[in-house]
Simulated scan of single mutants.
Amino acid sequence: MPQRQGYHHGNLREALIAAGLELTRVGGAAALTLRDATRKVGVSPNAAYRHFADRDSLQAAVAERIQHDMAAQMRGFQPPASVQEGVPATGSARGRLRAVGLGYIGFALAEPGWFDTAFSHAGALSDADPDAPSARPLQMLTAALDALVDSGELPTGSRPGAEWPCWSAVHGFALLALGGPLQGHPEADVWAAAERTVDAAIAGLLAGS
């Protein structure tokens, strides 16, 4: 099958990733196949092999792109007007960590298909610079925790490994909200529970230090 005009050498890779994003946004990781992605672009399946060895490599590229977008949302997250009094400002170290956690959950609730895809491939995880535009969610979290150390709120000795219980809290909550007992609950109730979960995780982290 001839390539459509505009999809020639040099931008086919990006076109296939865009097709993968479209497929996974609706159907999650299971919806991504090389055949369907190439069909959307208008090329033969064989054309994809110049850029992706197999479905696995395309999935890794799509997951990585989603993580970039997810990190951008976490970076720019602003708490809704309904936040409880006494919650630290987003500009503080503790507020930054809170924003990262709520931004993670917010992305999951808004884009369940992409959230499912984002962590479906280990190849999408990396040690990117947390201050770079291409940072992933994990790097956003580690940077926020490091800021807590810099602010003096978290002792240096309590920092190693702190990302794992924090990440487990928000990731587990997202799964409960998307496919567990919180599924179908009123949006306001789910968000209130998300805030409570993040605040409890932060309080537990600081209390344990």
Rank of each mutant, 00 (worst) to 15 (best):
S120D: 10
L125M: 14
G161H: 06
A143W: 03
H171L: 09
P137F: 04
C166P: 09
G161W: 06
C166I: 14
G157R: 05
G157H: 05
A122P: 10
S120H: 07
S120N: 08
S151D: 15
A169N: 02
G172L: 07
S158C: 06
E187H: 12
A143H: 09
W164Y: 15
A128H: 04
P133Y: 14
L182S: 11
G180H: 09
M140R: 15
A143Q: 11
H121Y: 09
R159M: 00
H185K: 15
V149N: 00
D129V: 03
G180D: 09
A135H: 02
W164Q: 14
P133G: 09
S151L: 15
L138F: 12
A135V: 00
H121R: 13
D150N: 08
P133N: 10
G172Y: 08
L176R: 11
A174G: 10
V170L: 05
Q183H: 10
G179M: 10
D129G: 00
P165E: 00
A132I: 07
Q139N: 08
T142F: 02
L141E: 02
T156K: 12
W167T: 14
R136A: 07
G152A: 06
S151H: 12
G123E: 07
H121S: 12
S126K: 05
P133M: 11
P130G: 04
P133L: 10
V149T: 06
R159N: 02
L125P: 03
P186H: 02
L138H: 12
L176M: 11
A144W: 03
D129W: 01
Q183M: 05
T142M: 09
L182Y: 13
D150Q: 10
W164G: 07
A135I: 01
A174N: 08
A122M: 13
S134C: 12
P130T: 05
D150A: 13
S151N: 15
A135Y: 00
D129S: 04
S151F: 12
P181T: 14
R136E: 05
P186Y: 01
Q183K: 08
P165N: 02
S158E: 04
L141S: 04
M140I: 10
P155T: 01
P137V: 04
S134E: 14
C166R: 10
S158K: 05
V170K: 00
A144D: 06
A177E: 09
V149F: 00
D146I: 06
C166Y: 13
P181W: 14
L125C: 11
M140T: 11
S158R: 06
G157S: 11
G184W: 01
A143K: 11
G172M: 09
D131C: 12
V149K: 01
L141N: 01
Q139A: 13
H121A: 12
D131A: 13
S126W: 11
A122L: 14
